[in-house]
Amino acid sequence: MEQLIIFGILISLGYFFGRHAEKKHYKSIQEREKHWLQLPTTSSKYVLEDDRIIDHCDLVNGSMVVSVDYFKRILARLRNFFGGNIQSYETLIDRARREAVLRLKESCPEANQVINLRLETSSITKGSGKQIGSVEVLAYGTAVYFCK
């Protein structure tokens, strides 16, 4: 009985706090993405067409470690049984990727372009069995500065 109560508390904590945090995070991501549209970013190796002369360039990176909440973990465990899309994990990793790219852009506000953007995902703490504990997303690229 006691175990059931603890389980219920953990689930509801995960549900309410997790959902609130996700909504807040998505809102801030959307706002910042709008702001950072001014900084052209590509995954191509070459500098986008521009007449200005390149002054210098630098390696920039941004990262985020994100963890699933208890409620989503239970949902995913159920999904593992029936099969299909685990939407709760999809949104989690989507959030981490977009945040990592935003942090990369925020680390070089003076840059004119970011080229060769690469994203890498790695799970840093493995949970039991097939479960993922927390995921790290790293975004890195080359910031290009033009002569003024």
Binding site: G14, G18, A21, V66, S67, V68, D69, G133, S134, E136
Partner: peptide, 14 residues
């Protein structure tokens, strides 16, 4: 891990 969200300590560490 119960509440979910960013693990700031690990982000900093890495």
């Amino acid at each position: 891990n119960v509440f979910g969200g960013e693990l700031k300590g690990y982000t900093e560490l890495l």
